[in-house]
Simulated assay, not measured.
Amino acid sequence: MARTLFITGASSGIGAETARQAASKGWNVGLFARSKDKLDTLAAEIGEQAMVLPGDASDLSQQREAVAHLAEAYGGVDAAFANAGTGASVPGAEDGDPEEWETMVHLNVLGLLWTVKAAIPLLRESRGHMVLTGSAAGRKHIKGSVYSATKWFVHGYGGNLAEEMRDWGGRCTVIAPGMVDTPFFEEAKPDKLKPEDVAGAVMYALEAERRANVQEVFVMPTD
């Protein structure tokens, strides 16, 4: 029976590429993001293995509804990928924009927690897998970076969640990429990682033997 993966931030970049790679390996994929038109295009490309689930990751009720629809359609949820995130246009404590900080914390921290909260009951049933998008920036100090601090949270929480899920046979992985050439950045980064590199790391963790919990994967550009 095909396994089912719920993905936030699925409309582009790492999320979209993970959906493609998962579907190619036989997974059903729930595509969750605000951009319904992009999700529709991606679902048309993938085919019947994909389900479009428009919504805002910073809203717990919308995530719960989406996960429930996905489980009803495919008979359960085996994994969830909390991938939605955003950065800040102006770095630093003194110059940073408090409104940007609020948006970023709501999505990068609370949005990730909402994915966990929405999916965890179904993952317990399937002894499933939670994947979180961290960052290499979440393992080092970057001058005045609030974004980096939100990713420190992801790494700390990911380890804590892995311990909780271990009690019932579940797994949790933090994927920590360096700079990736995605729409996250206003300018192209052609010499950096590609979304497919990070998606490959997600699939490595998801496809690992049940005896192996791959808790963190760092993927860095060679340049």
Rank of each mutant, 00 (worst) to 15 (best):
M1Y: 10
F6P: 00
T8I: 04
S11H: 04
S12G: 05
G13W: 00
G15S: 08
Q21S: 07
A23R: 02
V29R: 00
A33W: 00
K36A: 13
L39C: 06
L39W: 05
T41S: 15
A43V: 07
A44V: 12
S58G: 13
D59L: 12
R64A: 15
E65V: 11
E65K: 07
A66Q: 07
A68F: 09
A68V: 13
A68G: 13
A68E: 15
A71W: 02
G75Y: 11
F81W: 01
N83V: 09
G87W: 01
D95V: 10
L107A: 05
V109H: 07
L110I: 10
L112M: 15
W114T: 06
W114L: 02
A119H: 02
I120N: 09
P121L: 08
P121M: 06
L122K: 09
L123E: 03
R127L: 12
G134W: 03
G134H: 04
A136D: 14
A137Y: 06
S148Y: 11
W152I: 01
G156P: 04
N160T: 14
E163K: 12
R166A: 15
G169H: 10
G170D: 02
T173H: 01
A176G: 12
F184V: 02
E187Q: 13
A188W: 13
P190W: 13
D191C: 07
K192D: 13
K192L: 11
V198P: 05
G200A: 13
A205L: 05
V214T: 10
E216K: 08
V219P: 00
